[in-house]
Write a protein that binds this DNA or RNA. Structure first.
Lengths: 186, 186
DNA sequence: TCCGCGGTAGACAAGTCTGTCTACCTTTAT
DNA sequence: ATAAAGGTAGACAGACTTGTCTACCGCGGA
């Protein structure tokens, strides 16, 4: 029975880490915002790092589910899905307090690749690329791994550009590029 | 006469911010590593944020110079230069303590777009895109702005992917994609 | 009725952070 | 020779950090 308290705590942690970063977000702030006592946090997690890890794990499944569902609500053809990805990204970029991808940000703040936090970020990327690859295979791309990687690069580039420049339409340019690369991959 | 002390301080700050992030890097550590007294820091900068800004400004010019020079040492044709970019990136990714792009990381840790630190990061990106655009114009691209943005997206994507996955060959996939997009832009 | 569980509130320890201040040292120019 | 400039060393204040501990509260079940 993963208590509702824990759930709510992690949810709040996700939001704050997302918005302000990991080192800049203090435990006390998360606790206050979640309306949860400190002892409750330390009953469920051994340390702040464990909470970060919990937040990343939670957001990993949640965000991938959301993204895949949003894509598949827009397109059934695998080629169109790879393009719909960028429409969904564009929507995300426009959301009020968009601050890039939690996992990218985590890998920057926890640079050591051995760090479980960094590893969790890498794993998230790997898992989502699996979904992209399924689509690349389904459209019969000559080199599906290559196309997957190219789409993934455009995706990461669009996220980062939107984060730095604050300009949501990097998703449009990425979509255009993706269309060309998909065409060329046949 | 921008003292050598200041220069060395900023240089050290660049390295440490690069490697460990901004909030995670304490003033004292920078001071110790640089072998400089605290008062010297606060004589040249009003606060840690000002030092961060100084480090970003320094690295802005330094890194753009380095990058452009490395590209132009490899190719004279503008189209080849746009491709050589990715070879240079690949080299960078393989350097020992590569931890992504300082400016991307800064924009993540200082999410507020009004923050001068975030603004400095955005400005760096804008300036380097100018160089890319010159090349895009020189090859006679139909829509040079579009090609510029596409190349920039691939660049950011390659940086981010190398940072998270630790895999330097994202630059190769990006280069392949760039070649296709350049071809298609004619 | 009474016990125990899950939670709260908040004090606390020990460390770290930025930023200020004073006292001293060393070099250079007059 | 002396004075000013620029730097060092290190103490210090005050705030903030994570993590621990104690005392209490309220509810459900035996």
């Amino acid at each position: 029975m993963p208590s509702q308290r824990r759930e709510h705590l992690v949810q709040t942690a996700v939001q704050l880490f997302q918005k302000h970063g990991y080192h800049a977000t203090g435990i006390d702030r998360i606790l206050a915002e979640a309306g949860v006592a400190k002892m409750t946090l330390y009953k469920h997690f051994r340390s702040k790092d464990e909470l970060i890890l919990g937040a990343l794990r939670q957001w990993d499944t949640e965000s991938r589910n959301w993204l895949v569902r949003a894509i598949e609500a827009r397109a059934t053809d695998p080629g169109e899905r790879l393009l719909a990805l960028f429409d969904v990204l564009g929507e995300w970029f426009e959301s009020h307090d968009f601050n890039g991808c939690m996992f990218n940000n985590a890998s920057a703040e926890f640079a050591d690749h051995e760090d479980p936090i960094h590893a969790a970020a890498a794993e998230h990327k790997r898992l989502f690329r699996n979904y992209l690859r399924e689509q690349a295979v389904a459209i019969g791309a000559g080199d599906p791994d290559k196309l997957t990687q190219q789409i993934a690069l455009l995706m990461e580039g669009a996220i980062m550009t939107a984060q730095v420049s604050g300009n949501a339409d990097s998703s449009v340019a990425a979509k255009d590029a993706a269309a060309i690369l998909i065409e060329a991959s046949a």
